[in-house]
Protein backbone atom coordinates (compact mmCIF):
# COMPACT_ATOMS: atom_id res chain seq x y z
CA UNK A 1 0.00 0.00 0.00
CA UNK A 2 3.04 2.25 0.28
CA UNK A 3 3.04 2.61 -3.48
CA UNK A 4 -0.50 3.88 -3.36
CA UNK A 5 0.20 6.62 -0.87
CA UNK A 6 3.34 7.74 -2.65
CA UNK A 7 1.40 7.83 -5.90
CA UNK A 8 -1.22 9.98 -4.26
CA UNK A 9 1.56 12.30 -3.24
CA UNK A 10 2.73 12.53 -6.85
CA UNK A 11 -0.81 13.12 -8.05
CA UNK A 12 -1.34 15.85 -5.47
CA UNK A 13 1.90 17.47 -6.56
CA UNK A 14 0.77 17.41 -10.18
CA UNK A 15 -2.50 19.04 -9.24
CA UNK A 16 -0.83 21.77 -7.23
CA UNK A 17 1.63 22.47 -10.03
CA UNK A 18 -1.17 22.78 -12.57
CA UNK A 19 -3.26 25.07 -10.40
CA UNK A 20 -0.31 27.39 -9.84
CA UNK A 21 -0.18 27.84 -13.61
CA UNK A 22 -3.87 28.59 -13.84
CA UNK A 23 -3.10 32.26 -14.44
CA UNK A 24 -2.59 31.66 -18.18
CA UNK A 25 -5.69 31.08 -20.22
CA UNK A 26 -6.04 27.36 -20.92
CA UNK A 27 -9.39 26.43 -22.45
CA UNK A 28 -10.38 22.83 -23.09
CA UNK A 29 -13.12 20.88 -24.80
CA UNK A 30 -14.29 17.28 -24.34
CA UNK A 31 -15.98 16.02 -27.51
CA UNK A 32 -18.53 13.25 -27.24
CA UNK A 33 -18.84 9.86 -28.88
CA UNK A 34 -19.54 11.09 -32.43
CA UNK A 35 -16.05 12.55 -32.61
CA UNK A 36 -15.07 16.05 -33.71
CA UNK A 37 -15.51 15.24 -37.39
CA UNK A 38 -19.09 13.97 -37.27
CA UNK A 39 -20.18 16.63 -39.83
CA UNK A 40 -22.80 17.65 -37.37
CA UNK A 41 -23.04 18.41 -33.68
CA UNK A 42 -19.48 17.81 -32.48
CA UNK A 43 -18.07 19.33 -35.62
CA UNK A 44 -20.11 22.46 -34.95
CA UNK A 45 -18.37 22.78 -31.58
CA UNK A 46 -15.04 22.07 -33.25
CA UNK A 47 -15.63 24.89 -35.74
CA UNK A 48 -16.47 27.26 -32.90
CA UNK A 49 -13.35 26.52 -30.86
CA UNK A 50 -11.17 26.51 -33.99
CA UNK A 51 -12.47 29.98 -34.81
CA UNK A 52 -11.47 31.11 -31.33
CA UNK A 53 -8.04 29.58 -31.77
CA UNK A 54 -7.53 31.33 -35.09
CA UNK A 55 -8.63 34.71 -33.79
CA UNK A 56 -6.84 34.67 -30.46
CA UNK A 57 -3.86 32.46 -31.21
CA UNK A 58 -4.60 30.53 -28.02
CA UNK A 59 -4.66 26.77 -28.44
CA UNK A 60 -6.94 24.51 -26.47
CA UNK A 61 -6.78 21.02 -25.02
CA UNK A 62 -9.16 18.47 -26.46
CA UNK A 63 -10.28 14.91 -25.97
CA UNK A 64 -12.74 12.66 -27.80
CA UNK A 65 -14.45 10.11 -25.57
CA UNK A 66 -14.98 6.57 -26.80
CA UNK A 67 -17.10 5.12 -23.99
CA UNK A 68 -19.41 6.17 -21.18
CA UNK A 69 -16.91 6.15 -18.33
CA UNK A 70 -14.33 8.24 -20.17
CA UNK A 71 -16.52 11.34 -19.94
CA UNK A 72 -15.96 11.86 -16.23
CA UNK A 73 -12.34 10.77 -16.53
CA UNK A 74 -11.59 13.23 -19.33
CA UNK A 75 -13.39 16.15 -17.71
CA UNK A 76 -11.56 15.55 -14.43
CA UNK A 77 -8.25 15.26 -16.19
CA UNK A 78 -8.84 18.58 -17.96
CA UNK A 79 -9.72 20.18 -14.64
CA UNK A 80 -6.65 18.72 -12.93
CA UNK A 81 -4.47 20.26 -15.61
CA UNK A 82 -5.95 23.61 -14.70
CA UNK A 83 -7.98 24.05 -17.88
CA UNK A 84 -10.54 26.85 -17.68
CA UNK A 85 -13.12 27.06 -19.11
CA UNK A 86 -13.94 23.47 -20.01
CA UNK A 87 -16.64 22.75 -22.57
CA UNK A 88 -18.65 19.54 -22.21
CA UNK A 89 -20.32 18.57 -25.47
CA UNK A 90 -23.75 16.99 -25.52
CA UNK A 91 -26.47 16.07 -23.05
CA UNK A 92 -24.83 12.77 -22.22
CA UNK A 93 -21.95 14.52 -20.48
CA UNK A 94 -24.22 16.22 -17.96
CA UNK A 95 -23.93 13.73 -15.06
CA UNK A 96 -20.15 13.53 -15.42
CA UNK A 97 -19.81 17.30 -15.69
CA UNK A 98 -21.94 17.81 -12.58
CA UNK A 99 -19.62 15.60 -10.52
CA UNK A 100 -16.41 17.17 -11.82
CA UNK A 101 -17.69 20.74 -11.60
CA UNK A 102 -18.44 20.17 -7.90
CA UNK A 103 -14.90 18.88 -7.33
CA UNK A 104 -13.33 21.91 -9.00
CA UNK A 105 -15.53 24.83 -7.93
CA UNK A 106 -12.98 27.47 -8.97
CA UNK A 107 -12.88 26.42 -12.61
CA UNK A 108 -15.56 27.28 -15.14
CA UNK A 109 -17.53 24.76 -17.18
CA UNK A 110 -19.82 25.16 -20.16
CA UNK A 111 -22.26 22.38 -20.98
CA UNK A 112 -23.90 22.37 -24.38
CA UNK A 113 -27.33 20.78 -24.98
CA UNK A 114 -28.21 20.12 -21.32
CA UNK A 115 -28.61 21.86 -17.98
CA UNK A 116 -26.46 21.45 -14.87
CA UNK A 117 -27.36 23.89 -12.14
CA UNK A 118 -24.12 24.83 -10.36
CA UNK A 119 -22.52 28.22 -9.64
CA UNK A 120 -19.55 27.49 -11.91
CA UNK A 121 -21.47 25.94 -14.80
CA UNK A 122 -22.90 27.64 -17.85
CA UNK A 123 -25.57 25.53 -19.56
CA UNK A 124 -26.53 26.18 -23.16
CA UNK A 125 -29.64 24.50 -24.56
CA UNK A 126 -31.52 24.96 -27.81
CA UNK A 127 -35.18 24.99 -28.82
CA UNK A 128 -34.83 22.60 -31.73
CA UNK A 129 -38.61 22.32 -32.05
CA UNK A 130 -38.86 26.01 -32.99
CA UNK A 131 -36.33 25.77 -35.80
CA UNK A 132 -37.86 22.51 -37.00
CA UNK A 133 -41.26 24.17 -37.04
CA UNK A 134 -40.05 26.75 -39.54
CA UNK A 135 -38.45 24.24 -41.92
CA UNK A 136 -41.58 22.08 -41.57
CA UNK A 137 -43.66 25.01 -42.82
CA UNK A 138 -41.28 25.53 -45.67
CA UNK A 139 -41.40 21.86 -46.62
CA UNK A 140 -45.21 21.80 -46.65
CA UNK A 141 -45.38 24.94 -48.79
CA UNK A 142 -42.79 23.62 -51.24
CA UNK A 143 -44.41 20.20 -51.56
CA UNK A 144 -46.59 19.65 -54.62
CA UNK A 145 -47.76 16.21 -53.56
CA UNK A 146 -48.87 17.28 -50.08
CA UNK A 147 -46.53 14.75 -48.53
CA UNK A 148 -43.34 15.63 -46.67
CA UNK A 149 -40.79 13.32 -45.08
CA UNK A 150 -38.61 13.22 -41.98
CA UNK A 151 -35.55 11.00 -41.51
CA UNK A 152 -34.25 10.94 -37.96
CA UNK A 153 -30.96 9.51 -36.74
CA UNK A 154 -31.04 7.43 -33.61
CA UNK A 155 -34.49 7.10 -32.09
CA UNK A 156 -34.11 9.22 -28.94
CA UNK A 157 -36.33 11.92 -27.42
CA UNK A 158 -34.13 14.72 -28.76
CA UNK A 159 -34.70 13.60 -32.35
CA UNK A 160 -38.41 13.12 -31.71
CA UNK A 161 -38.38 16.76 -30.62
CA UNK A 162 -37.10 17.68 -34.09
CA UNK A 163 -39.73 15.46 -35.72
CA UNK A 164 -42.53 16.84 -33.59
CA UNK A 165 -41.64 20.45 -34.32
CA UNK A 166 -41.33 19.66 -38.01
CA UNK A 167 -44.74 18.00 -38.12
CA UNK A 168 -46.39 20.93 -36.32
CA UNK A 169 -44.82 23.38 -38.75
CA UNK A 170 -45.91 21.38 -41.78
CA UNK A 171 -49.50 21.12 -40.46
CA UNK A 172 -49.46 24.83 -39.61
CA UNK A 173 -48.70 25.70 -43.23
CA UNK A 174 -51.04 23.12 -44.73
CA UNK A 175 -53.47 21.34 -42.42
CA UNK A 176 -53.95 18.51 -44.89
CA UNK A 177 -50.28 17.69 -45.34
CA UNK A 178 -49.13 14.14 -44.64
CA UNK A 179 -45.89 13.73 -42.72
CA UNK A 180 -44.03 10.44 -43.16
CA UNK A 181 -41.39 9.74 -40.52
CA UNK A 182 -38.59 7.22 -40.30
CA UNK A 183 -35.82 6.76 -37.78
CA UNK A 184 -32.58 5.36 -39.12
CA UNK A 185 -31.87 3.03 -36.23
CA UNK A 186 -31.65 2.31 -32.56
CA UNK A 187 -27.92 2.41 -32.02
CA UNK A 188 -25.39 5.23 -32.32
CA UNK A 189 -24.46 3.73 -35.71
CA UNK A 190 -27.64 5.45 -36.91
CA UNK A 191 -25.78 8.76 -36.78
CA UNK A 192 -23.44 7.65 -39.51
CA UNK A 193 -25.25 5.36 -41.94
CA UNK A 194 -25.65 7.24 -45.26
CA UNK A 195 -26.61 4.02 -47.08
CA UNK A 196 -29.62 3.46 -44.87
CA UNK A 197 -30.45 7.16 -44.97
CA UNK A 198 -30.56 6.96 -48.74
CA UNK A 199 -32.80 3.86 -48.68
CA UNK A 200 -35.24 5.48 -46.24
CA UNK A 201 -35.40 8.62 -48.37
CA UNK A 202 -36.05 6.59 -51.54
CA UNK A 203 -38.79 4.69 -49.73
CA UNK A 204 -40.43 7.97 -48.78
CA UNK A 205 -40.13 9.30 -52.34
CA UNK A 206 -41.88 6.15 -53.59
CA UNK A 207 -44.76 6.98 -51.26
CA UNK A 208 -45.08 10.43 -52.77
CA UNK A 209 -42.85 12.54 -50.55
CA UNK A 210 -41.11 15.37 -52.40
CA UNK A 211 -39.43 17.27 -49.54
CA UNK A 212 -37.43 15.45 -46.85
CA UNK A 213 -35.84 16.78 -43.64
CA UNK A 214 -32.93 14.81 -42.22
CA UNK A 215 -32.00 15.23 -38.55
CA UNK A 216 -29.55 12.37 -38.57
CA UNK A 217 -25.94 13.57 -38.36
CA UNK A 218 -23.74 11.89 -40.95
CA UNK A 219 -26.63 9.76 -42.20
CA UNK A 220 -28.06 12.93 -43.72
CA UNK A 221 -25.55 12.93 -46.57
CA UNK A 222 -27.20 9.78 -47.96
CA UNK A 223 -30.62 11.38 -47.68
CA UNK A 224 -29.46 14.47 -49.56
CA UNK A 225 -27.81 12.41 -52.29
CA UNK A 226 -30.99 10.37 -52.75
CA UNK A 227 -33.02 13.57 -52.99
CA UNK A 228 -30.65 14.96 -55.59
CA UNK A 229 -30.75 11.74 -57.65
CA UNK A 230 -34.56 11.64 -57.54
CA UNK A 231 -34.98 15.35 -58.26
CA UNK A 232 -36.64 16.02 -54.90
CA UNK A 233 -35.86 18.56 -52.18
CA UNK A 234 -34.00 18.03 -48.92
CA UNK A 235 -33.50 20.07 -45.74
CA UNK A 236 -30.21 20.05 -43.85
CA UNK A 237 -29.59 20.17 -40.13
CA UNK A 238 -27.32 21.59 -37.38
CA UNK A 239 -24.90 23.48 -39.62
CA UNK A 240 -25.84 25.28 -42.84
CA UNK A 241 -25.70 22.47 -45.38
CA UNK A 242 -27.27 24.42 -48.27
CA UNK A 243 -23.99 24.36 -50.21
CA UNK A 244 -23.88 20.53 -50.34
CA UNK A 245 -26.24 20.16 -53.30
CA UNK A 246 -27.36 23.58 -54.61
CA UNK A 247 -30.77 23.20 -56.23
CA UNK A 248 -31.67 20.27 -53.99
CA UNK A 249 -31.14 21.72 -50.53
CA UNK A 250 -34.27 23.73 -49.83
CA UNK A 251 -32.85 25.13 -46.59
CA UNK A 252 -31.15 24.00 -43.37
CA UNK A 253 -32.30 24.03 -39.77
CA UNK A 254 -29.23 25.56 -38.18
CA UNK A 255 -28.40 25.09 -34.53
CA UNK A 256 -25.59 27.43 -33.57
CA UNK A 257 -23.53 25.21 -31.30
CA UNK A 258 -20.44 26.77 -32.86
CA UNK A 259 -21.49 30.18 -31.57
CA UNK A 260 -22.16 28.75 -28.12
CA UNK A 261 -18.71 27.16 -28.00
CA UNK A 262 -16.98 30.24 -29.38
CA UNK A 263 -18.77 32.53 -26.95
CA UNK A 264 -17.80 30.39 -23.99
CA UNK A 265 -14.10 30.66 -24.78
CA UNK A 266 -14.30 34.26 -25.94
CA UNK A 267 -16.21 35.61 -22.94
CA UNK A 268 -14.06 33.63 -20.53
CA UNK A 269 -10.98 35.13 -22.17
CA UNK A 270 -12.15 38.73 -22.43
CA UNK A 271 -14.42 38.77 -19.40
CA UNK A 272 -18.18 38.54 -19.23
CA UNK A 273 -18.56 34.76 -18.90
CA UNK A 274 -21.57 34.10 -16.74
CA UNK A 275 -22.84 30.86 -15.21
CA UNK A 276 -26.48 29.84 -15.49
CA UNK A 277 -28.85 28.60 -18.15
CA UNK A 278 -28.96 30.00 -21.66
CA UNK A 279 -31.93 28.80 -23.69
CA UNK A 280 -31.28 29.61 -27.30
CA UNK A 281 -34.39 29.60 -29.45
CA UNK A 282 -35.47 31.64 -32.44
CA UNK A 283 -35.47 34.81 -30.36
CA UNK A 284 -31.83 34.39 -29.37
CA UNK A 285 -30.66 33.28 -32.82
CA UNK A 286 -29.74 29.86 -31.43
CA UNK A 287 -31.82 28.07 -34.04
CA UNK A 288 -32.98 29.33 -37.42
CA UNK A 289 -33.54 28.38 -41.02
CA UNK A 290 -30.69 29.13 -43.40
CA UNK A 291 -30.93 31.35 -46.47
CA UNK A 292 -27.97 31.97 -48.77
CA UNK A 293 -27.11 32.17 -52.46
CA UNK A 294 -27.45 28.38 -52.83
CA UNK A 295 -31.14 28.22 -52.06
CA UNK A 296 -32.25 31.77 -52.90
CA UNK A 297 -34.20 30.75 -56.01
CA UNK A 298 -35.79 27.68 -54.40
CA UNK A 299 -37.60 29.67 -51.76
CA UNK A 300 -40.35 31.95 -53.04
CA UNK A 301 -40.99 35.29 -51.42
CA UNK A 302 -44.42 34.00 -50.37
CA UNK A 303 -42.79 31.14 -48.50
CA UNK A 304 -40.30 33.44 -46.86
CA UNK A 305 -42.88 35.91 -45.69
CA UNK A 306 -45.09 33.16 -44.24
CA UNK A 307 -42.15 31.58 -42.43
CA UNK A 308 -40.89 34.94 -41.20
CA UNK A 309 -44.35 35.77 -39.89
CA UNK A 310 -44.49 32.49 -37.96
CA UNK A 311 -40.99 33.17 -36.67
CA UNK A 312 -42.05 36.60 -35.40
CA UNK A 313 -45.17 35.06 -33.82
CA UNK A 314 -43.13 32.39 -32.06
CA UNK A 315 -40.69 35.00 -30.77
CA UNK A 316 -43.58 37.18 -29.61
CA UNK A 317 -45.18 34.17 -27.90
CA UNK A 318 -48.32 34.32 -30.04
CA UNK A 319 -47.56 30.95 -31.61
CA UNK A 320 -46.71 28.07 -29.31
CA UNK A 321 -44.67 25.13 -30.55
CA UNK A 322 -45.17 22.02 -28.50
CA UNK A 323 -41.93 20.57 -27.13
CA UNK A 324 -41.86 16.76 -27.35
CA UNK A 325 -39.49 16.54 -24.43
CA UNK A 326 -41.79 18.45 -22.07
CA UNK A 327 -44.11 15.44 -21.81
CA UNK A 328 -42.50 12.80 -24.06
CA UNK A 329 -45.39 12.88 -26.48
CA UNK A 330 -46.28 14.71 -29.65
CA UNK A 331 -50.01 15.02 -29.15
CA UNK A 332 -51.20 18.38 -30.33
Amino acid sequence: MREFSSLIGVAALLVSVSSSNAADFKPAVVFDMGGKFDQSFNEGIFNGVEKFKKESGISYREFEVTNETQREQALRKMAQRGSDPIIGVGFAQAPALEIVAKEFPKQRFTLIDMVVDLPNVQSVVFKEHEGSFLVGMMAAMKSETGKVGFVGGMDIPLIRRFACGYEQGAKHANAKVEVIQNMTGNTPAAWNDPGRGSELAKGQFDRGVDVVFAAAGGTGSGVYQAAKDAGKFAIGVDSNQNHLHPGTMLTSMVKRVDVAAYNSFDTAHKGGWTPGIQVLGLAEGGVDYAMDEHNANLVSSKMRSAVDKAKADIIAGKLKVHDYMSDNSCSM
Binding site: F91, M114, M154, D155, I156, P157, L158, N186, T187, M325
Partner: peptide, 21 residues
Protein backbone atom coordinates in the same frame (compact mmCIF):
# COMPACT_ATOMS: atom_id res chain seq x y z
CA UNK B 1 -31.25 -6.74 -28.21
CA UNK B 2 -30.24 -3.23 -29.12
CA UNK B 3 -33.62 -2.48 -30.71
CA UNK B 4 -35.44 -3.90 -27.70
CA UNK B 5 -33.35 -1.86 -25.26
CA UNK B 6 -33.94 1.36 -27.18
CA UNK B 7 -37.66 0.68 -27.28
CA UNK B 8 -37.79 -0.05 -23.55
CA UNK B 9 -35.60 2.85 -22.49
CA UNK B 10 -37.16 5.42 -24.81
CA UNK B 11 -40.78 4.44 -24.26
CA UNK B 12 -41.14 2.52 -21.03
CA UNK B 13 -38.30 2.76 -18.55
CA UNK B 14 -37.14 6.34 -19.12
CA UNK B 15 -37.22 8.55 -16.04
CA UNK B 16 -39.90 11.17 -16.67
CA UNK B 17 -38.33 14.52 -17.46
CA UNK B 18 -34.90 13.09 -18.21
CA UNK B 19 -33.36 14.30 -21.46
CA UNK B 20 -31.50 11.11 -22.24
CA UNK B 21 -33.12 7.69 -22.30
Amino acid sequence: ASALMVYLLVNVLVEPGNMSP
